[in-house]
Design a protein around this nucleic acid. Structure first.
Lengths: 200, 200
DNA sequence: TCAGTCCCGGACCGATCGGTCCATAATCTT
DNA sequence: AAGATTATGGACCGATCGGTCCGGGACTGA
């Protein structure tokens, strides 16, 4: 057909992959499904991505970028108030659990599907979670936490528990306690910080 | 060959399944692998279990039973002291993360692999987590917590986060904060309870 | 207008998936 | 001892897996 490389193709493949992998999991979705749903030929997909593993990694990189975009969006209004930013992020994650298309965290999910530490998808997932851990630590340090590393890790527990339990038991399950528990932790580690009435 | 139903067969299949499913995940393991590793014929396996889904469910039921057995073992020494029992359980889970064959929680993992709520494996996983949630609530009530449901859910967050993060980032990651965070939560919800020096 | 270039859909590959079924052989009954 | 019974291993099934490759056709440059 066209001789131009059809610039939207890669994006369409990634969007389709995101939907299918997110809804059903990676191993449950075959490359043929991705191809059929995208409406492209097989050779084109394999020209854009070396194989399924690479497609998974690219999907997670994309997810990571979008994740941070959203994090930036919900934390920007609280610029200069790291405690509020942490709690806003937690609130955002809590809200995401009750969205109808929530099927757990793509990073935790993909890690649990691929146990080989060398798998590109698993590697991307690990990078994402490490970055989040670092972000929490930095915010904690800015907030004057006595032990920012400890606070970050405690908050990581809440986030992981929120997403894992949200997937299995829904938003009315343990997930509902995530914002309050995060606040408890923040208050514990930043005792002198006034955690005013949650938001506005 | 023998006409006797080879009584150990079912158990051997379950043990092999536990090892393979646990190490690699359910979808990564084919029935042929289970058969080869067990050393039985295919027909025998399909006589014992109606299909892979049923085998998965049976494996999780077995895992659930063993899980509660171990929970009983680690909490029995603290009979009558529900707070200590909760913290002992948390300590036990934290220890399990650093075992070399730890590959995440089979219940969370299996849930994330099978999104269909009607899948027998997913159903078993949900039952297990609900039972754990109930156990924590009961202990909280016994400990005189003001809001035992809230405390149970907050602790479920810690447990979920411990297992999810432990799988990806190891025991030196956020998982390390699970015992201390659980103690923080317990102290918050049972303010009058003296949480004496952690254990002995 | 006509090669030439190169993108593209889909036919095709061997391997493996979950699951069925049959020939074999070991035990039990008589 | 001999026939009946039944557990058993593995051949076999169609479907699908991830991945390769080729023939056809649309665009480009001359």
């Amino acid at each position: 057909m066209a001789r131009t490389p059809a610039p939207g193709t890669r994006r369409r493949i990634l969007e389709t992959s995101a939907r299918l992998f997110g809804e059903q999991g990676v191993r449950a979705v075959g490359m043929q499904q991705v191809i059929d749903a995208t409406g492209v030929g097989k050779s084109l997909l394999y020209r854009e991505f070396a194989g399924k593993d690479e497609l998974v990694a690219a999907w997670l990189r994309e997810s990571d970028a979008q994740w941070w975009e959203q994090a930036e969006r919900v934390t920007a209004p609280h610029s200069g108030d790291p405690v509020r930013q942490i709690l806003a992020l937690m609130e955002f994650l809590h809200d995401s659990v009750q969205e109808p298309d929530f099927h757990g965290c793509v990073f935790y999910n993909t890690s649990s599907e691929f146990r080989d530490p060398g798998h590109p998808g698993r590697r991307e997932a690990k990078l994402h979670l490490q970055a989040l851990r670092d972000w929490l630590r930095d915010k904690g340090a800015l907030a004057g936490a006595g032990d920012p590393d400890g606070m970050a890790d405690a908050l990581m527990l809440v986030i992981g528990g929120l997403l894992a339990n949200g997937e299995v038991l829904g938003v009315r399950g343990p997930a509902r306690m995530a914002p309050a528990t995060a606040e408890l932790i923040v208050r514990q580690y930043c005792p002198d910080t006034a955690v005013a009435p949650p938001v506005a």
